[in-house]
């Protein structure tokens, strides 16, 4: 026991030292002029840039816009994905007819449609919403559908002998039975959806973290680029943590016993 703990402490401190060494190396390489400042930012410069952006209130407004665009598209995708997913299972002929079309549209590389979306919906909220939807909907939809299809046949028999209606079967059986698979879909799309927003903002926008990234590239502000990259990473990890929280405490409480 004691030995195991000592090993873990040893591992953690080793990892910390390694991390500090990498950062130190980057700091030295940039400050000593071994690497051009345009290519790599010294960690200290990144920290100073981060501080300045906070003080000058540059970061926060852009982050809010990105988060808003993300949630607007994501909420629609979750609602539509889960609902359609179970409807496809409840009505097999719908499933048979439409699934090939859904698969085909899912196969389109989403980034390729960004220019078209801008022509259709402009460079504001709507085009970002639609892109987030396209990035996330299909995964949520197929995860829900495939999860609901795995519903234990005996559960369906129970519902039938109790005389459950179709909508009761959908809401009381199919959705709860599909929940583990739905949660997996949400976890995957929490990060891919954010990727979608950033992509769209880099391509065409007047605000948001992607815009900030694009702008700092144009100005050769490498430390700022690093700040934005770090913020985006933290944001996506935060979304995943939020899904995990919902899983543990709300939707799949029963699985975590």
């Amino acid at each position: 026991m004691e030995n195991k703990r000592a090993k873990i402490i040893g591992l953690y401190s080793g990892q910390l030292i390694f991390l500090l060494a990498v950062l130190g190396l980057a700091e030295y390489a940039v400050k000593a002029g071994k690497i051009n400042k345009m290519f790599l930012a010294a960690p200290s410069d990144v920290a100073i840039e981060f501080y300045n952006m906070i003080v000058q209130n540059i970061l926060w407004p852009h982050m809010i816009i990105t988060v808003e665009e993300f949630f607007a598209g994501y909420a629609v995708a979750v609602a539509a994905g889960v609902l359609l997913g179970v409807v496809f299972v409840a009505f097999p002929w719908i499933d048979q007819f439409f699934t090939p079309f859904f698969s085909a549209v899912m196969a389109v590389p989403k980034v390729a449609v960004i220019p078209l979306l801008i022509i259709w919906f402009g460079i504001g909220l709507l085009s970002k919403m639609v892109l987030v939807f396209l990035f996330t909907f299909f995964v949520i939809f197929f995860n829900t559908r495939n999860g609901a299809k795995q519903t234990n046949i005996n559960f369906l028999k129970v519902a039938k002998v109790f005389g459950a209606t179709k909508s009761q079967t959908v809401f009381k059986l199919l959705i709860p039975a599909a929940m583990p698979s739905i949660i997996t879909g949400l976890r995957i799309t929490a990060t891919t959806g954010l990727t979608g927003v950033i992509f769209a903002e880099i391509t065409a926008s007047k605000a948001g973290l992607g815009y900030l990234l694009q702008e700092s590239t144009a100005l050769y502000n490498t430390p700022r680029m690093f700040v934005v990259i770090i913020v985006v990473t933290i944001l996506s990890q935060f979304f995943v943590a939020f899904v995990n929280f919902l899983e543990k405490n709300v939707f799949l409480k029963w699985q975590k016993l």
Partner: peptide, 8 residues
């Protein structure tokens, strides 16, 4: 197998 709903 009793077929209880595990989420309830």
């Amino acid at each position: 197998d009793s077929s209880l709903f595990p989420w309830r």
